[in-house]
């Protein structure tokens, strides 16, 4: 018979392909709905939150690498994906996805990290003008006299602010909708569950069921 630990590890491991596929599918969904966001990091943020730092980092790295088959310039952002997955896993481990104030703090941390990495990679590898549409806005800002470095940081921040906020909020909403039975099967499930949110109110009177009538009692009424 299967040991509990092996199934537990397998659940964590299988989060990687599912996270990568979600990155891909939700990225495609954003394109289908013609939304001005990428949404290609929901999968590895979810994998990091449910599976921990290592699962999140591997999922983020593979997610971006897989996307590079359709956008060759994306390869260099694999390290950004890995870093976000790693940090999300660490934040979940520290219990920073329990309760909305902590979730807001986690989102801010992810946005700052994502902006910094995006700006650094874009500047170092492509001189600030990568193959994404936001580079056109960046070029327009530079033409108006804004320093290149400031234009990169500003445009990266605006893009990441909307994208990463949605990418964190969506998994958190879904985790909130998950049953406890399913949630506890993932390596970090117990750290994400907020017992107060599902607990019954303490002052509510306990309804005691009447003693079950024996066979034939129905006919005595």
């Amino acid at each position: 018979m299967a040991s509990k630990a092996s199934v537990f590890n397998l659940m964590g491991l299988l989060l990687i392909p599912v996270g990568v596929a979600l990155d891909f599918a939700l990225g495609g969904l954003a394109l289908t709905l013609k939304l001005p966001i990428y949404l290609d990091s929901v999968g590895h943020i979810l994998a990091g939150a449910l599976g921990g730092p290592v699962i999140g980092a591997v999922s983020g790295f593979l997610g971006v690498m897989t996307n590079s088959a359709f956008s060759a310039d994306a390869v260099v952002w694999a390290f950004q994906g890995a870093a976000i997955g790693l940090v999300v896993g660490l934040l979940a481990w520290a219990g920073l996805f329990k309760g909305w104030p902590k979730i807001v703090l986690s989102t801010v941390i992810i946005i700052v990290l994502s902006t910094a990495l995006s700006a650094i990679i874009s500047y170092a590898v492509y001189g600030g003008f990568d193959g994404y549409g936001i580079s056109a806005i960046r070029a327009a800002l530079v033409k108006t006299g804004m320093p290149l470095e400031l234009a990169i940081i500003l445009t990266a921040f605006v893009a990441e602010l909307i994208d990463k906020t949605l990418s964190v909020v969506l998994p958190i909403i879904v985790i909130g909708l998950m049953s406890e039975r399913l949630l506890y099967k993932f390596p970090m499930g117990s750290l994400l569950h907020n017992p107060q949110s599902n607990a019954a109110p303490q002052d509510e009177p306990t309804v005691v069921a009447p003693p079950t009538a024996g066979y034939g009692a129905y006919g005595d009424k």
Partner: peptide, 19 residues
């Protein structure tokens, strides 16, 4: 507005498929 009704079932079904 259409994003959540599409993304939430997708993510939930993906997580169920993990099990």
């Amino acid at each position: 507005k259409a994003l959540l009704p599409v993304a939430a079932p997708l993510i939930l079904s993906a997580l169920t498929s993990v099990e």
